[in-house]
């Protein structure tokens, strides 16, 4: 209920016929940011490049979860299945076929996309909480199986050859492109007619169906897109970690990180997951690593505070406040409209 309200507020522009022009403008702006970011690679210190790589990978991870959970209302608790598939398929392709990281990343994304499509057959029978639990079960089963899969190293894990790992600068550029892709896909999905139909689907599957939305096709498409982006993020994590065991890549941690980042940043918004990734990875995980359990306390507390006091998340809340400052009259009108709807 509250998330629906939040959408009416922050995404009111969707109803504006001019809004469709926002997609090319926003993607263009993102592309400019990405190109500037790529150009800046030589100017940045290794420390910043390093922060960038991990941050970009988390942005892609969070945005991919947002596309599924935030835009189409399909909460996934099995993110590890796609991260792991991406990481393992890339490592296997690099080790056994001698491929370099570029085709390796494409394989990571494709394999996770294929997994999504295969899992979609049973998963799309499920709705709401059941879908969430279904992704959880699929992820757990896959992890338990990979632990026994001798060809991929079983529980001893797998390594990418150190010589095949790109340099920090290259990793930064890869990360930037991956993060750009994830945010651009979200923009396109969120602010297009397609996105409007997804929103309808999220609020009520039956309602969307009555409006003529091909619900199964839309859910499948979002599932596969999200899977491909998650696999790409998994490939990037694998390139930075180099050696990993099944529980590292298929484990529950990825679901937790994606969920926390998106909820805190702002579920269903375009930039919310980016803000969430920045706040959690940079603000909490990195800065508080010297104080064991403090970051856990903060994350748990933040989650509770967010769902209790600002369910729409930090970014949409901040945008709303800024808009209210910039255009008090318009915002007041809109807010009173919201209050009436409540």
């Amino acid at each position: 209920m509250a998330t629906a309200t939040a959408h009416v507020v922050t995404g009111a522009a969707e109803l504006d016929p001019l809004a469709r022009r926002r997609v090319p403008v926003a993607v263009g702006a993102l592309a400019v940011v990405a190109v500037v970011g790529l150009g800046a690679e030589r100017l940045l210190s290794p420390a910043l490049l390093n922060v960038g790589v991990t941050l970009f990978a988390y942005v892609a991870l969070a945005e991919a979860w947002n596309i599924l959970g935030g835009l189409s209302g399909q909460m996934s608790l099995g993110v590890g299945a796609f991260v792991g598939t991406g990481a393992y398929s890339m490592a296997l392709a690099m080790n056994h076929l001698g491929w370099s990281w570029l085709p390796g990343l494409l394989v990571a994304s494709a394999a996770a996309g294929v997994l999504s499509a295969v899992l979609a057959v049973p998963l799309l029978r499920l709705h709401g909480d059941y879908f969430a639990v279904g992704t959880l079960a699929a992820g757990l089963a896959l992890e338990a199986w990979v632990n026994n899969w001798g060809f991929a190293g079983g529980s001893s894990g797998i390594s990418i050859a150190v010589g095949a790992v790109p340099t920090l600068g290259t990793l930064y550029s890869i990360g930037l492109v991956v993060a750009f892709l994830a945010v651009a896909v979200t923009v396109v999905l969120r602010w297009s007619i397609f996105g409007l139909r997804l929103l309808a689907l999220r609020e009520s599957e039956l309602g969307a169906e009555l409006l003529g939305v091909d619900v199964v096709r839309y859910r499948l498409l979002v599932l596969v897109l999200s899977g491909m982006l998650t696999g790409l993020a998994g490939g990037l994590f694998a390139l930075t970690q180099i050696n990993f065991v099944p529980s590292d890549m298929f484990g529950m941690t990825w679901t937790i990180e994606a969920l926390v980042m998106v909820i805190i940043g702002g579920m269903g918004s375009v930039l919310g997951p980016v803000v969430g990734a920045l706040a959690i990875y940079y603000g909490i995980s990195t800065e508080l690593a010297t104080y064991p359990t403090l970051s856990l306390f903060l994350e748990g507390g933040l989650l509770l505070a967010i769902v209790r006091f600002f369910p729409e998340g930090l970014w949409p809340f901040a945008v709303r406040r800024l808009r209210a400052l910039a255009a008090p009259a318009r915002a007041a009108r809109r807010l009173s409209g919201v209050a009436a709807r409540r």
């Binding site: 420390a47 970690q241 990993f244 590292d248 995980s285 990195t286 690593a289 010297t290």
Partner: peptide
């Protein structure tokens, strides 16, 4: 400088790089 990786390999890898670079 001691950082806690909470027994997580991914975090350990990230922290090792950050300890050197940052």
């Amino acid at each position: 400088v001691v950082l806690d990786n909470a027994s997580d390999s991914t975090t350990a890898s990230q922290q090792a790089r950050s300890l050197v670079l940052k």
